[in-house]
Amino acid sequence: MTDSLRACKLLFIWQFHRFKRFLPMIVVIQVALAFGIVYGLAFLIPHIDSTTALYLATGAPTVALLLMGLTVVPQEVSQGKLTGRFEYLSALPIPRLATLATDVFFWLAAQLPGTALALIVAAMRFHFGLRIGWTIVPTILLVAFSGASVGYGIAMLLQPQVSMQLTSFISIGILLFSPINFPMERLPSALQAIHRVLPVKYMGDLVRWSLSGKATGSIGVAFAVVAGWCALGLLTSYRLATRRR
């Protein structure tokens, strides 16, 4: 365990040096995006009530966490395969999933300040209360690692060009057809059936509950489903990472 943490710490430092030139820009974009989403919501729905605003504002972090795993992580793997970085890291005496874990923690660190700010601004603008519980920490990790393991798996299995197309497709599916930002009842029954099995809806429920204390479904079930999917995703990622040519 100590070795794993040490490896992750060193890889985190490596990532920091790689991206430190762009970090100010990344933070500015995240903050701008945060304000943009809040004011954008007001344009989208002119007479927004505080319940709808709560749904949208607490759905946004779920979407952001999933998109991180589905865009940044596969991009890192695909780019690494092209530059030789991936091959080099594969030959290092470090745990097989250390690079994936480092990517998730690094991009979480870059993204969370913006996401938190968006939430606070939304709560002030639309007058709803936040009640943040300790469950937010495991929830964020479960959602981030679930999304990242899907992105990682796709990038490991497919050519870079194809994997980018597929992850974009899944991202749009999550943005438009997943009951994160709206209640599931609005979806056609076929999509509802799919979302009773997939983890996306449950992720939305968990994040909302952890941020506002308002349950939009059984929290126990949500935890179980998301944890199960996350474990499956990480197990698959591990199998792919240890796969030899």
Binding site: L10, W14, H17, F19, T83, G84, A91, P93
Partner: peptide
């Protein structure tokens, strides 16, 4: 094993000293 790949190791953003130190500590 320690390994020098044919294509080199991409170290964009790092100084040579940082890259060598990180590699040594990862080993």
């Amino acid at each position: 094993c320690s390994y020098q790949p044919q294509a080199g190791v991409p170290i964009d953003g790092l100084t040579p000293m940082q890259a060598i130190e990180l590699s040594g500590r990862l080993h």
